[in-house]
Design a protein around this nucleic acid. Structure first.
Lengths: 344, 344
DNA sequence: CTGAAAGCGCTAACAC
DNA sequence: GTGTTAGCGCTTTCAG
C-alpha cells in the first residue's frame, strides 16, 4: 500500500489538512511545521496521488493531443514529432502532463476526445491539423471545451488557434522565384481538405497576380503524392509545351519525391526547374541539391499552442488575449532555387 | 456540474451500485435494467469520471512514454514518431491512454517518471531508448515498476524489452556488401552510449571477421555527425590511402548527411562508395540515389512494446512469456549499394 | 439480481 | 496556524 497523506500526518503529529496545505504551499503555515512535514514526506517516500487530487480539485493538469489519422500523418512525421516536442516542453514547464490520442476515423476521434474531456481526464485539447468540416472541432466547440488548433478553422474563426500566415508565406515563396525572373511557375499542393493547402495556394496565386504572371490550371497539381504518382505527375508536368521553370511545393517531403522523380527523368534542379517548399525539415538541407524551404517554426507552433491552451484553461476562455497567434516564417534559400532566368 | 452516476441512478429508479454494475458489464444484472440504465445514460449524456474510477480501482489504464532528451531525439524524429504511432495504436486498442513525458536531463526524467508512477497516474512506462547506465532504468527496476525498453539494458538483462537483433542485422548489412565483392568496408556509428550502436558495431565486426576481411580503426567513425562534421569526416575518410569501397551506417539520417558530403566532394554513390544504413525511413527511397537500408519494423517495435507492457501490467510481471521480444528486420536493397567489386 | 454503506486519497470550507 | 468535517464520483463488500 502506498503512503498517503494520513500516514504523513500521523507520523508528523499533525492533521491531514496541514499536510495538504504544506503540499500546496499554503501561506498560513508555520515554517517549522512545513519543514518538518516535508522531512517526513521525504523520509516516507510520499507521493501525492494525482487522481485523488484531480477528483476533488476538478482539474487534471493535463492536456491532450489529437494525432491525425495515420494516412494524413505519413505526410510528415517530422512535422508532428517536432510539434509534439514543442507542446510537451512547454506543457511540462507549466506543470501539465500531455496525453496523446488518436482515432482510426473521425467518429473514433470524437469518441476519444469526448471520453477524455467529459470523463474529466484532461482539461483541454490541441488539434494538430485543421481539416475542413471537422466533426471533432464541432464537438469541441459546441460543448464549450478548451481547445486550440494548429492551423485555423474556417467555420469557427474565433476559435483559439496557432498558425502561420500561410498566405503570406506562400506569397513570399512565389515572390522569391519571381524575383529570380521566373515567369512560368507551378504549384504542387497537398490534400485539398487541409486548410493550409488552400491558404498556400491562395498566397501563391496572389503573388502571380500581383506580378501580372500567367497561371495555367495545368501548372497546378492538387492532391498528395509521393513516389509513383509523383513520378507520373512530374513526367506529365515536365512534358507540357510551356512547362514551368519553377514550382512551389506544399511540403519538403513532397519535394523529396519530386526531386527523385526529376532525377530519374534526367532533369536538373535548379537548372531545369527551381523548387521552393515548406516546413524546412532538418533533412531539407541534406538533399541533393539542398532545398529552399520556408521555415514555419514548427517547434514554436507547438510551444505556443501549448501555452495558449493552458492559459485558456487557467484564465478562462474569454480573456482578451490574442485568439489567433501567428508564428513568423522565414524563407531559407538554398541551392534548389538558385537559378535565375534572364528575361527575354 | 457534470452528470454523475447518482443522477443516472435516480432517474432510472435504481441504486448507484446498479449503474456501476451496468457500466462494468457485471454478469448478474438483468438485461432489462441494463437496457434501461444505458438508455438513461445516453439520454443524460453521462460520462464516467475516469479519475474517480482510478482512485478506487487503483489502476489508471494509462501508460507513459518517456521521450528522449531533445539532443538525442533530433537524431531521428521519424523514428520516434513511428514508434509512438505503434504504441498509441495498440494501447488504445487495449483500452489504454498514453501519456507522453520527457525531461531536460536524467534527473528530471527520473523525477517525471517517479511523479507519474508513484502518484498513480500511469500504470507503466515505455522507454524509447536504451542508454548505458541510465538512472531512469535503475529507478524503474529498483522500485518494481512495470516498464519496457525499446532496445535492451545491459545492466538488467531480465527486464522486459522489445528490440531488433541488431547484431544480426548489422551482420546482414555487412554480409550484403561482402557478397558484392567489397573487401574494404567502413562503419559509421552513432552516439556510443546508445546500446544499439554497440550492437551494430559488433555485428559489423563479426561479419568482417567471418569473411576474413581486414578492419582498420580509421575505417570506423564513431559518434553522431551530420552536416559540417559529416563533411569533414567524409573528406578525411575518402582521402585515406586505402579507402573503403563501402560503408555501413547507423541510421538513414546519417546517410543523408554522408550522401550530401559525398556529392559535394564529387564522389559518386554507389560507384565510389556503397552505402547501407538502418531504419528504412520513408525518405530513404526518395534520396538520390535511393538508400539501401535495414527495415527494423519501427511501428512494430512500438506496437509490441505497448502490448508487452500492458500484458505485464494486467497479468503481473512474473508470467513466463518472452521477456525479450525480437522484431524481425529486413534488408531493403536499393541503388546506394548496387555496385559490385570484381575481385582482383 | 439489487441496494446500502463504506471508503479510495485528497481538498476546502468552517471552526477554534 | 491548525484541526474537523464533509464530500469529489466511483466501486465493492455485504446483505437480502
Amino acid at each position: 500500500m502506498a503512503v498517503t497523506i494520513k500516514d504523513v500526518a500521523k507520523k508528523a503529529g499533525v492533521s491531514p489538512s496541514t499536510v495538504s496545505r504544506v503540499l500546496s504551499n499554503h501561506p498560513r503555515i508555520s515554517v517549522e511545521t512545513s519543514r518538518k512535514v516535508k522531512e517526513i514526506m521525504e523520509q516516507l517516500g510520499y507521493h501525492p496521488n494525482i487522481m485523488a487530487k484531480s477528483l476533488v480539485s476538478k482539474t487534471t493538469n493535463s492536456i491532450c493531443i489529437m494525432l491525425p489519422k495515420s494516412a494524413e500523418e505519413l505526410f510528415s512525421n517530422f512535422f508532428f514529432m517536432e510539434l509534439i516536442r514543442g507542446i510537451v516542453t512547454q506543457a511540462s514547464r507549466l506543470g501539465y502532463d500531455v496525453l496523446i490520442s488518436s482515432g482510426a476515423n473521425e467518429k473514433e476521434e470524437v469518441e476519444a476526445v469526448s471520453r477524455l474531456l467529459n470523463g474529466r481526464r484532461v482539461d483541454g485539447v490541441i488539434l494538430l491539423y485543421s481539416r475542413k468540416d471537422d466533426p471533432v472541432i464541432d464537438f469541441l466547440y459546441e460543448n464549450g471545451h478548451h481547445f486550440v488548433l494548429i492551423g485555423r478553422s474556417e467555420r469557427y474563426p474565433d476559435t483559439l488557434s496557432v498558425d502561420n500566415d500561410n498566405v503570406q508565406a506562400s506569397y513570399d515563396a512565389a515572390k522569391h522565384l519571381i524575383s529570380l525572373g521566373h515567369e512560368r511557375i507551378g504549384f504542387v499542393s497537398g490534400p485539398p481538405d487541409l486548410v493550409f493547402s488552400k491558404d498556400r495556394l491562395k498566397g501563391f496565386m496572389d503573388a502571380l497576380n500581383d506580378a501580372g504572371l500567367e497561371m495555367r490550371p495545368e501548372w497546378i497539381v492538387e492532391g498528395e503524392f509521393l513516389q509513383d504518382s509523383g513520378y507520373r505527375a512530374m513526367s506529365f508536368f515536365m512534358n507540357l509545351p510551356d512547362r514551368p521553370t519553377a514550382i512551389v511545393l506544399i511540403d519538403d517531403v513532397v519535394s523529396f519525391g519530386v526531386l527523385r522523380s526529376l532525377h530519374e527523368l534526367k532533369y536538373k534542379v535548379p537548372e531545369d526547374l527551381c523548387l521552393v517548399s515548406f516546413n524546412n525539415i532538418p533533412l531539407s538541407e541534406l538533399s541533393t541539391p539542398p532545398l529552399s524551404s520556408i521555415d514555419i517554426g514548427i517547434y514554436n507552433l507547438g510551444y505556443t499552442a501549448s501555452q495558449l491552451l493552458i492559459q485558456s484553461i487557467e484564465n478562462g476562455n474569454d480573456k482578451n488575449y490574442q485568439k489567433r497567434q501567428i508564428i513568423p516564417h522565414r524563407l531559407m534559400i538554398r541551392e534548389s532555387s538558385m537559378h535565375s532566368i534572364s528575361k527575354k
